[in-house]
Design a binder for these strands. Sequence first.
DNA 1: TCAAAGTGTGAACCATGATTCACTTTATTT
DNA 2: AAATAAAGTGAATCATGGTTCACACTTTGA
Lengths: 221, 221
Amino acid sequence: MVYRVTEKALARKADNKAKILTAARTIVAQSGFSGLTIAATAKQAGLATGSMYRYFPNKVELCTALFRQLSGREVGEMHTIAQMDLTPLEAMARCCFNFIQRAFRAPTQSYALIAEPLDPALEMERLVYRRSYAEVYRHVIERGISSGDFSPQDSKTASLAIVGMLAEPLLEPLHRFYSGDKTPYDSHQLALDISRLCLNALGAHQQAKQADLDFLIHESH
Amino acid sequence: MVYRVTEKALARKADNKAKILTAARTIVAQSGFSGLTIAATAKQAGLATGSMYRYFPNKVELCTALFRQLSGREVGEMHTIAQMDLTPLEAMARCCFNFIQRAFRAPTQSYALIAEPLDPALEMERLVYRRSYAEVYRHVIERGISSGDFSPQDSKTASLAIVGMLAEPLLEPLHRFYSGDKTPYDSHQLALDISRLCLNALGAHQQAKQADLDFLIHESH
DNA sequence: TCAAAGTGTGAACCATGATTCACTTTATTT
DNA sequence: AAATAAAGTGAATCATGGTTCACACTTTGA
């Protein structure tokens, strides 16, 4: 045989794969998963439709990889906050607040991750994604239960409920962005309200007051 | 002209329309919206595919009508509870508890209404549906704020958060049912846990204890 | 009974978008 | 340069499932 795959070739391949994912990301950020067709992605990446199949065996794999990448980034962000040297109460408050602030910074993408109708195969991936969010919260909640910041409870259920509380009130405003409505929205107020609801739900000892929260969240800036 | 539409003819038409909706309901209860094709619905209703279009101009209309029917029933149920002569706290507790219990009684259908991936046009309907749930809760919350049962807050945001808290922890178990897994699930415990989280979130004055709740919800049986 | 209007039929049609494939081009080694 | 393997191409193919349509049958009122 006179042809061997060199590392250079492999690198080029990996590079192209990344380029495809970047293209896909661009499309999702602009028009959500509904705009993500193989043809459109190929075009955006500067490739022919057929070439896509040299990098991903089918569309679901591409979507899944993309979904993982995007959601991994988001969850990672929460994880970082959760790992900081904060009281469970502070950590929770910041997680909630930041989640919402981040969502409004990239509304179409957030809508895609949180609520856009997806192919059933991707829907599974979304469940995974939501569960990994919940896991991050669960650790914080457990710390909080031990420390007495939160009341004793099933941390799994509580963490899922938090995920729901965070996502649901975002639906309508994000959907508006997704369908092209550019009306501004007071996301700061919403973020505070929801954060307070979350802390209360967990039975935070001193009932959370908006003003306290505001301070709690912003004290380090 | 020698032909006039008689009331009899109209009745027959309405009757058939209802028969189609019943057929559609059967299918959704069994396999969710993903199994709801025009052909399958026609077959189930004992009609030809083409005939469907004498009753509904297109598929989206059919799905929408069905979605409204199903969700209207569910929301009506909550509304009934909310209208009963109960304290806001009791009303809220029962709404939460019943929502979850009902979901487990018709898991595939609930999954379809709450979380199944849908055609974007239907997704809008789902938003409406969620909002009307939220409206029911909103009234209860406002009563509760006035009475001092709940702490002062934006009732709109709070009601949406409640919807999210109720829906999210159901996702995984309902999805399991939807994909055919018949493992039983302790829905009673879950219902209690979530109800408590909801009441706490609203800042219910005395922090809700599981035992109190259990009593509260079941005292009239 | 007859014309007009409606209803039922299901195979044919159509739109969308993923996937394939025969072929060309490029990279690698001898 | 020649042989080989992989990558790139984009038009053709395929699958799904909604929608149409030409025709047969039924209902209605004069």
